[in-house]
């Protein structure tokens, strides 16, 4: 295969890995967001811990893989993105610290202060992560101040109405996903409390997505592909329609369908973003000449070929045993039996 073909394949794989991460961690982060709202005592907190306990680590590795794939397949993108968005990456890192530590350590001591600290560390991080990811990806669509000597902006230049709206889209979607996941996995009062949250979060998500698309068409640099090939508008339109379907399923109390629907919404939303970016990966607002595309930032042919073979073998195996792990924990968690961490 030619280098260009391989680079395009890796761009698609890169998008797929990010999308799988968003879909999977949406429910674990969403569970973290609603954690203090739906749990009233230790037993219920154990229950929610167990709702995501067996899976969140495996979900997070998709993020690590997305980072590793960026490094391996598009080294220049990895280097520019991580060093340009320095403070944002640092905050993302801290959120990842306390999401994991908060969840796993909160009940390791009986001191109420300890428990409160790690519980809130877990919850706040669960909001911070989608917010930061939303802001980061919106800025990829919006374009960065990339000039001759790399990034010429600052952290605060990343915060504008459009990117914050992107963060809110992620928060609302992930919260919906988390609330539905808690309902699917549990019995008891946490289910009815989560239902209330889902009924609120899903319409917010749909509204935020609609506003975000308006912003994308007017503010961002990824509108060109859609204007050139109008058939591509089917992706954002599908995103919106499916997000409305989620609301419908929630109010009809078809929770599994609603959860599937929110996962497809995230898929369609991610697809919209990656379709719009193609073939760009880091768009410069200063001059197109400074943009990093999949062509000018990819690794060598040999490396991409090797990585492609590894991915073709390993990704199905990983997906296989991850699906198998879900079948082990099929039984609904009851408040009395839950052990948590």
């Amino acid at each position: 295969m030619s280098l260009d073909t391989l680079a395009i394949i890796w761009f698609v794989l890169w998008g797929v890995i990010w999308t799988v991460y968003f879909i999977l961690d949406a429910y674990s982060l969403g569970t973290g967001m609603i954690f203090p709202l739906v749990t009233k005592n230790r037993k219920e907190r154990n229950q929610l811990q167990e709702t995501i306990g067996p899976f969140w680590g495996g979900n997070e590795v998709w993020l690590v893989t997305a980072g590793g794939a960026t490094f391996a397949a598009f080294p220049a993108v990895y280097a520019t993105m991580f060093s340009s968005l320095y403070e944002a990456m640092l905050l993302l890192l801290f959120a990842l610290f306390f999401r994991g530590a908060g969840l796993e350590l909160m009940h390791k001591d009986d001191n109420p202060l300890w428990q409160k600290f790690f519980k809130w560390a877990f919850t706040i991080s669960s909001y911070a992560l989608p917010l930061l990811l939303g802001v980061a990806f919106s800025n990829l669509y919006y374009g960065l101040l990339l000039g001759e000597n790399g990034y010429e902006g600052s952290f605060f230049k990343l915060l504008h109405a459009y990117s914050i709206l992107g963060g809110l889209v992620f928060i609302a979607l992930f919260m919906t996903s988390g609330a539905l996941w808690v309902m699917i996995k549990n019995t008891g009062e946490v289910v009815s409390r989560s239902y209330k949250i889902a009924k609120f979060a899903a319409p917010v998500a749909a509204a935020a997505i609609a506003m975000f698309f308006v912003g994308t068409m007017n503010e961002s640099r990824i509108a060109d592909n859609f204007n050139e090939y109008p058939v591509l508008f089917s992706a954002p339109v599908a995103t919106l329609l499916i997000s409305l379907a989620t609301i419908y399923f929630i109010f009809k109390n078809k929770i599994k369908s609603a959860f599937a629907s929110v996962c497809i919404t995230i898929f369609a939303l991610s697809a919209t973003g990656f379709i719009g970016m193609f073939p760009n990966m880091l768009i410069s607002r200063i001059d197109e000449a400074y943009s990093l595309t999949l062509y000018n930032s990819s690794g060598s042919q040999k490396n991409l070929q090797l990585m492609f073979i590894v991915a073709v073998i390993m990704v199905p195996i990983v997906i296989g045993y991850q699906i198998w792990s879900y079948t082990l924990f099929k039984k609904k968690i009851t408040t009395d039996e839950a052990k948590g961490y």
């Binding site: 306990g53 067996p54 899976f55 969140w56 680590g57 495996g58 997070e60 590795v61 690590v64 893989t65 980072g67 590793g68 794939a69 490094f71 391996a72 397949a73 080294p75 220049a76 990895y78 280097a79 690794g299 060598s300 490396n303 090797l306 990585m307 590894v310 991915a311 390993m314 990704v315 990983v318 045993y321 991850q322 792990s325």
Partner: peptide, 24 residues
């Protein structure tokens, strides 16, 4: 990156998924 990145990506695909999923 062309050389250093691939062992890291393979590490995630082959090792991190295995340890995290089975730890759960």
């Amino acid at each position: 990156g062309d050389i250093f990145g691939s062992p890291l990506a393979i590490e995630a695909l082959v090792a991190f998924f295995l340890e995290s999923t089975f730890m759960g």
